[in-house]
Design a protein around this nucleic acid. Structure first.
Lengths: 154, 154
DNA sequence: TTACATGCAAATCTTTTGCAATGAG
DNA sequence: CTCATTGCAAAAGATTTGCATGTAA
């Protein structure tokens, strides 16, 4: 499934630019780990990516996973978030599109959404305090209203 | 400054109830550490609380700080948040009042706010996805528009 | 007297780093 | 060739835990 090269063309392009600018190189594991990361669902932890990579019978050490993820973060290609527990999760930083999260505590499902009205209000709040809004994090937590939620945890 | 007993009367009351319900006890360090916590600004890390406690020449180990903070968390009296870096910060969980955060990246100031319109929209978003909103986290990041921001970092 | 609380040090967990060996350009 | 990347194991930082001892109720 190397077609992330097409789907995420812009991603690889920006990565290319970043590597060049920083005089960094490509490498077998770097490329492969990134491809696997792009294949996975969003909100991936280092541990999860590591397991997935191993599952694909590809060899890469934990240190490489972290170094790759940090590289992507430095390149501005992924965002690192800390939800509840102690481990960070990474998500693709789509250009001029940012998803907020709606997390179902019944089943741990993470739904992404965007709401222009909320964003406008956020800008207003910031400005009312003399700040120019540069970024934000919005996570909503809720429980499933459907008794038979197919995602419900056992 | 043991007047947190008055200001935070409701806090101590709920704590009392929780201790009783869980068959837990009061203790010199437990009480004192909590008083110091309440005296401090919000968004306190375990490390900061530990330092503050020592500054007051009170003796309590790091483990006790963590255990006390976890107790308060379990009692629903404080919320634990992970902002940027690796350490968690704790804040008082005021009853039916939750503050969202507006963080100035120019000076690291944290301003709390509340906006009913945003909250209503959040509820709508959750319901549109079949979820009943139970909680949320909203952090806005911005830069100071005032050139002479008195809080500006050197 | 009977748990629970404390302090310390050891243990965990996640993430980072030093270093020798390997690989890319 | 030269410099970046890798893997491993060790290090680091934050938080938790086991255990012997102290202490509320």
């Amino acid at each position: 499934m190397a077609d992330s090269r097409q789907t995420y063309h812009w991603f690889w392009q920006k990565l290319e630019a970043f590597l060049a600018k920083s005089k960094l190189k490509h490498s077998k594991q770097r490329n492969q780990v990134i491809e696997y990361f792009l294949e996975m669902d969003d909100h991936v932890s280092a541990e999860e990516l590591f397991s997935y990579v191993k599952e694909q019978n590809f060899s890469a050490g934990m240190a490489t996973i972290y170094r790759t993820l940090n590289l992507l973060k430095d390149a501005g290609l992924v965002d690192q978030k800390q939800f509840t527990d102690g481990k960070a999760v990474y998500e693709i930083n789509f250009p001029d599109e940012h998803h907020d999260h709606l997390i179902c505590t019944t089943c741990d499902r993470v739904i992404e959404f965007e709401n222009a009205e909320i964003e406008a209000l956020q800008r207003q709040v910031a400005e009312a305090h003399g700040l120019k809004l540069t970024d934000h994090t919005l996570d909503l937590f809720g429980t499933c209203m459907d008794e038979n939620c197919k995602y419900k945890k056992s």
